[in-house]
Design a binder for these strands. Structure first.
Length: 489
RNA sequence: GGCGGCAUAGCCAAGUGGUAAGGCGACGGUCUGCAAAACCGUUAUUCACCGGUUCAAAUCCGGUUGCCGCCUCCA
């Protein structure tokens, strides 16, 4: 089976055929480092991390490039506001970005180039574009002439007439066409600048991606990705620059992820509802966030809300409880029973077919939601297996449980899920939960002792009172054969 | 104004021609002192609405309604 990808360029699901067999060159637009990253960045990062992991899982040799835009109007503005220089601002937010991505447990890309480290290559590319007649000088700036590039608009599916009719474009006398975009901007006093054939200045936004992708991945990329909003103008402009310069197709497969809304509202500075990754990770385990995102298709819009994260957390908790129970069961001595437990064929079928179903879902345009459904399916069946095993596993049960557990670690790795030690996960979540409830473990354990005394005396009324009291505080008690355990509701 | 997307059970959400995955919730059962957890079962004759194509449509085509995004920096 081959991987099929919905290509933004064609609007169709296409079979993925890499330029070079078993190799993937993948470029994803990173961030402009002028502020903390928010949940939208997190989604994009998680989506492409998962795609990156899946290609590797499928045996591809992947070169993954994710850039930093470290020179730009917004950075200059920020620097002026804070009375710092641009470099300091960029360094600060690159550091923050790396911290966030680390906490989200993203795999490191192969290369993380910075725009400012590729200025000379950008100047070279701009010169080529001027030479070939695609770019011109207007005042002290250099612009790309979109009319010269006949395919302009092919990615975002719009034509020049439509866009001019829209006319929400700044009029700039230096431009021949209002839709032309800057390749090089002359620097104003006090702004950072680089020497160029056109005087002191700095690169436009789009040129860096054309240069850096070409440098690390060659003239044609297998995959280029980013958020939906980048389709126009950023990616459209990248295509124009790159293809005008090389005469070759720039990207074979374009992938764009959908947006994150907050409580059904668009996230924006004016609404003041920007949620940073930092804030989210204060309240939620990184795997909870991943589970939340991966239960939606990467292209669909996603609505972030407290309730949906609660749901994701409860799903993750349950997975880890099963994982923990399996680990415990596997430590038990094998029973010598020859007869297989009844109904085990069904369980065997689910466990055996899991990998194929997982890969089928992922091959189909990275359908993580579907694949996650199979994880739930697997979990339910493993729990069923645990029920019939009852601490006395037959060799067959044992091997199926082991096999199931391996799926959680191996296929789970693609999702960045189930990678924790279940006991550590449980203890960590308990600790975090208690913090929120303002309770200590000692109090709870003491109360449990008290309740078990009552139970021993068959004073069930008192025992239930104690249990209800804890429940109202957010603690759930479970009486198991091995004693009473507690967890945060 | 132009372009694109979405509409699936109480909620979340897969599913692009073959007769509705999965999760949460709810209800019934097994287990339990009772619960909880776990498991089993039930929970959409139907996919916004109206037409059409087809042996067959949630899926394709046309229209209607409603939501959203992009066209300006933006993941």
């Amino acid at each position: 089976m081959t991987i099929r990808i919905l290509n933004t360029l064609t609007g169709k699901k296409e079979e993925f055929v890499p330029l070079h067999e078993k190799k993937v060159g993948m470029y994803v637009c990173g961030v402009t480092v002028y502020d903390l990253c928010h949940i939208g960045h997190a989604r994009s990062a998680i989506v492409f991390d998962t795609i990156y992991r899946y290609f590797r899982y499928r045996g591809y040799d992947v070169i993954f490039v994710r850039n930093f835009t470290d020179i730009d109007d917004k950075i200059i503005k920020r620097a002026n506001e804070e009375g710092a220089d641009c470099n300091t601002i960029a360094e600060k937010y690159i550091h923050e970005f790396n911290m966030d991505m680390g906490r989200l447990r993203l795999e490191k890309p192969s290369f993380e180039p910075r725009a400012t480290e590729h200025i000379s290559e950008m100047i070279l590319l701009i010169s080529t574009l001027i030479q070939k007649g695609f770019a011109y000088q207007g005042g002290r700036d250099i612009f790309f002439s979109i009319e010269k590039f006949k395919d302009y608009g092919k990615l975002s599916k719009r034509n020049l007439e439509d866009m001019q009719a829209g006319a929400r474009v700044d009029i700039d006398e230096k431009k021949e066409n209002p839709l032309d975009f800057a390749l090089w901007k002359a620097s104003k006093p006090g702004e950072p600048f680089w020497e160029s054939p056109w005087g002191k200045g700095r690169p436009g936004w789009h040129i860096e991606c054309s240069v850096m992708s070409q440098k690390y991945l060659g003239e044609t990329l297998d995959i280029h990705g980013g958020g939906r909003d980048l389709i126009f103008p950023h990616h459209e402009n990248e295509i124009a620059q790159s293809e005008a310069a090389t005469g070759k197709p720039f990207v074979r497969y374009w992938i764009h992820n959908g947006f994150v809304n907050i409580n059904k509202e668009k996230m924006s500075k004016s609404l003041g509802n920007i949620l940073t990754i930092k804030e989210i990770l204060k309240d939620w385990h990184p795997e909870t966030l991943r589970l939340f995102f991966l239960s939606h298709h990467y292209r669909s819009p996603v609505d972030y809300s407290e309730e949906s994260l609660v749901e994701a957390k409860s799903g993750l908790d349950r997975f880890y409880m099963t994982l923990n129970a399996i680990a415990e069961e596997l430590k038990k001595p094998l029973s010598r029973k020859e007869a297989e437990p009844p109904g085990i064929q069904n369980y065997r079928h689910v466990v055996d077919s899991f990998q194929a179903r997982f890969e089928e879902a992922m091959d189909d345009d990275f359908n993580t939601a579907q694949a996650l459904g199979y994880f739930y399916d697997l979990q339910r069946n493993l729990n069923g297996l645990l029920d019939i095993s009852k601490g006395n596993p037959s060799p067959e049960t044992h091997s199926l449980l082991k096999q199931g557990l391996d799926h959680f670690t191996q296929q789970g790795w693609v999702f960045g899920l189930f990678q924790e030690n279940p006991e550590h996960y449980r203890d960590h979540e308990k600790k975090e939960g208690l913090k929120k409830l303002n309770l200590t473990e000692e109090e709870i354990l003491q109360t449990i002792v008290e309740r078990n005394l009552a139970r021993k005396e068959k004073n069930y009324k008192r025992a239930d009172e104690i249990r209800n009291d804890l429940l109202s505080k957010g603690i759930v008690l479970e009486d198991t054969p091995k004693g009473t355990i507690w967890k945060v509701k």
